[in-house]
Nucleic acid binder design. Structure first.
Lengths: 101, 101
DNA sequence: TTATCAGTTTCACTTTAGGATAACATTTGT
DNA sequence: ACAAATGTTATCCTAAAGTGAAACTGATAA
């Protein structure tokens, strides 16, 4: 029962990837101090490591590549249930979550 | 830098607590095979360990006790950003998330 | 150049979280 | 029993997430 915990991330220690042009509403919001998430990068990196395209991932998960793109770029904040579907159906993994005190 | 990872949970291995009477819409949905989450229990247990009431937690987080109750009972699926607020502002901890392959 | 593939963004629509408030229920203490 | 504290549920609202379709951009290749 060998399990590897990939990519443990603290949802606090990073800045979101650039999105859009400076001056746009979305970009401004992202930079305005809303909570930023590394989740997009986590999905993105895992997908690439598994050699999948957004479209292939979307098909496995039962969604569209446009939605995957939005998640990877932190444009939309996916639900945990959606993240779980991506990880489980798309990657064959298991999403875990914990509180570090 | 001693850190403890409390309550690492896999979002897959449990059934939600009972909610409402059988036959209600919410109850039916919960039992109908939607993804169920242990997150409510995680928040609930952590709150109790810290000796807080829902109202005290709500105040720290900037929300209401009714909302905390809904989260703890998995009636509403909190966003990750909201979970993070609860963990950080309410518990003084840090929310972490990972993919187990 | 022209396809093709991968990814991004826009547009539009539906659903839900999040919140306010208040009523109701349950537990706990005296 | 009663009261107080704590937790649950109901109702209603609004802003935002969730989502798909399709247009668009960028890169790569033939």
């Amino acid at each position: 029962m060998k399990t590897t915990n990939k990519n443990l991330i603290s949802l606090d220690e990073f800045k979101v990837k650039n999105y859009g042009k400076p001056g746009t509403k979305e970009r401004d919001e992202l930079e305005a101090g809303y909570e930023d998430f590394k989740i997009g990068a986590l999905i993105h990196d895992t997908r690439l490591e598994l050699g999948m395209t957004q479209e292939q991932l979307a098909e496995k998960v039962g969604t569209t590549k446009s939605y995957i793109s939005k998640i990877e770029n932190n444009i939309k904040e996916a639900r945990i249930s959606t993240l779980q579907k991506i990880v489980k159906l798309g990657f064959g993994g298991q999403l875990e979550l914990s509180i570090k005190m």
